[in-house]
Design a protein around this nucleic acid. Structure first.
Length: 137
DNA sequence: GCCAACGTTGGC
DNA sequence: GCCAACGTTGGC
C-alpha cells in the first residue's frame, strides 16, 4: 500500500464535506498540474492519503482512502487530466499543522515543505507513521 | 527551442 | 494583500 497527501482549500472542498459525502466517496477532481496528475495515476485502490487543508487551517485533518483509480476528470474539457474517487476514512484526533511539520526536522524532505505548490504528493511509510502518531492515532 | 511575460498557488 | 515559487503561454 502506498501513502499520499492531497490538498484542498476548505473554501472549495473541505474535510467536513468529504465526511458528509459518506462511504461511496467523492471525485477528487480539479487537478490541473502534470506532476500531480502523475501521482494521481500511481494511486491504487485501497491506498490512503492525508487530507490537508491549505490556506485556511494549514493542517492535516484526516485520512481518506482511494476507492476508485484514475479516470478522465469530467470537469476538464481538454480531456488531459484525471481524477480519483476518495472516501473519508477517519479524522485525526489532533490535526497536524504545517507549523508543527516544519518544526520537526524529520519532515524537512517532505514534498509538503519542499514543493509547497504540489497538490497531490507521495508520503513515505516512515513519515506516514510519524504523522499519524502526531495526529493522535 | 529559448526565454520573457503572465497566471496561479499557497504561505505569511 | 503581498510575494516567492513555479508552471504555462506565446513571440521570436
Amino acid at each position: 500500500m502506498n501513502y499520499w497527501l492531497v490538498k484542498s482549500e476548505p473554501d472549495a472542498w473541505s474535510w467536513q464535506q468529504q465526511v458528509a459525502s459518506g462511504a461511496r466517496g467523492e471525485a477528487w477532481n480539479g487537478v490541473r498540474n502534470h506532476a500531480a496528475k502523475l501521482n494521481l495515476m500511481r494511486m491504487k485502490k485501497g491506498d490512503q492519503a492525508f487530507f490537508y487543508h491549505s490556506n485556511i487551517g494549514k493542517e492535516i485533518v484526516g485520512i481518506v482512502e482511494i476507492v476508485r483509480e484514475h479516470y478522465p476528470d469530467p470537469t476538464d474539457k481538454s480531456g488531459k487530466f484525471v481524477c480519483v474517487d476518495v472516501k473519508a476514512l477517519k479524522a485525526l484526533p489532533k490535526p497536524v499543522t504545517l507549523a508543527a511539520i516544519k518544526a520537526d526536522p524529520r519532515f524537512a524532505e517532505m514534498a509538503l515543505i519542499k514543493l509547497s505548490r504540489l497538490s497531490v504528493q507521495p508520503v513515505t511509510a516512515t513519515d506516514w507513521k510519524a504523522l499519524c502518531k502526531m495526529g493522535g492515532l
